[in-house]
Amino acid sequence: MSTVELTGVSKRYGRGRIRALADVDIAFDQGVTGLLGPNGAGKTTLLRIVATSIAADSGDVRLLGRDPQRSQAEVTAVRRELGFLPQELGYPSDMTAFGFIEYVAVLKEWNDREVRSQEVRRVLGAVGLADQASVRISRLSGGQRRRVGLAQALLGEPRLLVLDEPTTGLDPAQRADLRRSLSAVAHRSTVLLSTHQTEDVAALCERVVVLAGGTVRFDGAVTDLVATAVGQVWLADEPGEDALVSWRTGTGRHHVVGGRRPVGADPAEPTLEDAYLLMLGPDAQRVHTPS
């Protein structure tokens, strides 16, 4: 049995007008899976269902072998082994980093004060904020706040870690730190993360799921997604006329993705971003999916 199993899961918002997820069948196991997709693709909805923050309108949800729609006891049992970083997390400005994590630790039933303190220090150390423990959150930078958010998700080494856009607001060095923190937990946990950064997925995830319009467009290894773009990416002297997207690179040549091969173009090694754009086509630009 997989850690996360969604069968025929659907979810609508706005009194049924906006389709967020449509009959999604997917399962997740140990390791890091990246969710890619444009805004409104259903990534956050999927993650919130897995995080027991919202319920699906229909379909079956099994988390850590339990059915959260069955009873409060099942929900609580899942939450005891869950770490969740929401997309938009408010940070109480008058709390210190330590106070914030400790508060969440109490909500996660770390009742022994001494053990709780050790755990709070451990997770702050894991995200590189051990020296900032007594600093008020209002004085931390955006990237540091995001790492405080990640630290609370790591409390108790959860079996299921759900991270909604964890790299937002982080600079390259901080993203590298975050990758290091996540790779340390990936071998023992099921990690689901959504991001707009294809390079994060390439660097962190063994598996990638591309969502668009509330449906799964691709589910497989990162290398397999990249392989779908082979033969569709070129370096050319002119922008491709019917290309999906093309831009002038620093060398003066044009990186052309999709469409017919421009005259005199040389085949280029596709990136994950190229493959993602090709997979979605015009949907890459779509924001909402009313139906």
């Binding site: 995080a51 027991t52 923050s53 409060q72 609580t76 939450r79 005891r80 869950l82 969740f84 929401p86 938009e88 997390l89 408010g90 940070y91 109480p92 508060y103 969440v104 109490v106 909500l107 996660k108 039933e109 609370q152």
Partner: peptide, 21 residues
């Protein structure tokens, strides 16, 4: 409430539970 407690999103998924809090 979301305005008074910016941690609502976390409280809603914590084992302690929003109702109990």
């Amino acid at each position: 409430g979301p305005r008074q407690d910016p941690l609502e999103a976390l409280i809603a998924t914590a084992p302690y539970g929003r109702t109990r809090l």
